[in-house]
Design a protein around this nucleic acid. Structure first.
Lengths: 266, 266
DNA sequence: GTGAAGTGGTTCATTATTCGAACCATCGGT
DNA sequence: ACCGATGGTTCGAATAATGAACCACTTCAC
């Protein structure tokens, strides 16, 4: 692995629950030598990707990230376009909704909205990359991704995140056939011991999958009826998100989400 | 310079006017060898900092940046906190307002709002880092920064951005004394041939400068009266932004911005 | 068609850069 | 004064970055 990747991977250790990290902790997390880690941190710092608390000497994500995300959003808005759709969905169903975009063989969270309605809350960490085989968003993506991509993912190791994670490629292929048929992916406790979720794919201009939107609810509260009740909101969100991103539903599948809409507002 | 910096610098070539860049253009912009640049691009791509248009093969900023900015905002919100303040200011004065945070010896844009009211518009590129000596935001920061930092900046080369840029350290020291006295920095055509601006500093918890907010107006429309008319909005914005960021105005200077406010709302 | 001049991308010997064990400095507690 | 944390630095050894030359593919002119 190149030096650049080693440095950039350090940034991935940040999360909502770990917003600042010291040198020592970086060393423990990465397993690399202290000197190496330190040099990488310094260089990331010099470029504004990290900033350092002058007293605790701990590092946190820096202003360059803000600047670059501003540039990306200005020219290719994704978060700001997904925000209203996801927020509306979260309010409609009263549960946590999150949108992610495909990055390599993982999903990168782009936006999430938690309506804070219930006592039991689903914890969602926007810093964590999501595996394709163990999340409903991931299955939604895989089901509608090109065959080559899907097979490459299924050939790669499929780690069990929880005891309920499906790790058998054959079993997954079966699930995916179903997802492709219904347009909706459902998983129970496959990624988080306490969460059930259902998701559907979002498409780009050429009808290719670019990401997914999922609704996550506490597993204890999950019933088929509740899941079904959220379906219209999910379907509508998929259509809206795809349209808002300038994408198109693939013609042969569009009917799975595009149902009896009461006229769309521009 | 290390490999990491070389790679990260590539990301800085993106801007609102240059949202996608091909290999060849990167080579021209950076002056580095094609093979080197390509390897760096691939590695940035692998980590999600870039994504590639499969047909044009041009690169643009990737989803990882979105994810990381989400993490930063979730734990240390800056943009979302500045947004309402800056937007309100822009609406109040009817001109472009931008907020930037200090990153090394440059300012990194964090948020800007353009009310789109006038015919002549000020172009603001959120991708471009701002020099301290040639912008009103920069002077506002320098005036209230620690002596050591200010002198370090003034000792470094002070490139002329336009014919009106003040490049003499002595002259700048004079300007800064004035800024320190009034709390407001004004510059005319020092960074952009067609823009005049006035800015003021934003402070962190310990009363240290962390950034600045500026109002930019087309130089042709700039008069002292217009500048003065925007002062109350600027002062109020400074107070609000500092407070919203969890910062404190340094006691010995607070009176410069904290004037006769009609009771602040929590 | 042929070729010239653009793209983007790859190879491989040379060499410069990164690496990491050991080291130092500072802090807080006993 | 000492211990055990922390963060940070040094310098020879070893690895990984480098770049001239090369390939493959388009587009355009003729």
């Amino acid at each position: 692995m190149g030096t650049i990747s080693k440095a950039l991977e350090l940034l991935n250790y940040f999360s909502r629950t770990r917003p600042a990290i010291g040198l020592g902790e970086f060393v423990r997390l990465s397993g690399r030598d202290k000197a190496t880690v330190h040099r990488h941190l310094v260089e990331l710092h010099e470029n504004g990707f990290l900033e350092q608390n002058p007293e605790s000497r701990a590092y946190r994500l820096g202003p360059a990230i803000l600047r670059l995300s501003g540039v990306r959003e200005a020219t290719y808005p994704v978060r700001s376009v997904l925000r209203p759709v996801v927020t509306r969905m979260a309010e409609a169903v009263g549960e946590l909704v999150h949108a992610s975009v495909l990055q390599g063989e993982l999903l990168s969270p782009a936006f999430h909205s938690d309506p804070l309605g219930h006592g039991t809350q689903v914890h969602f960490d926007e810093g964590e990359m999501l595996p394709l085989h163990a999340t409903s968003s991931g299955l939604a993506v895989l089901a509608f991704a090109p065959d080559g991509f899907r097979e490459a993912v299924l050939r790669a190791p499929l780690p069990a995140i929880t005891a309920q994670t499906v790790t058998d490629a054959g079993a997954l292929r079966g699930l995916l056939d179903e997802v492709r048929h219904t347009g909706i992916a459902r998983l129970d406790r496959a990624f988080d011991q306490e969460v059930a979720s259902q998701g559907a794919p979002v498409f780009g201009p050429a009808g290719e999958v670019v990401g997914a939107i999922s609704i996550a609810i506490p597993a204890v509260r999950s019933t088929t009826e509740k899941m079904d009740a959220a379906l219209p909101a999910l379907r509508q969100g998929i259509v809206e998100a795809t349209r808002a991103l300038g994408g198109n539903l693939p013609k042969e599948h569009a009917g799975k989400w595009e149902v009896s809409q009461p006229e769309t507002v521009d």
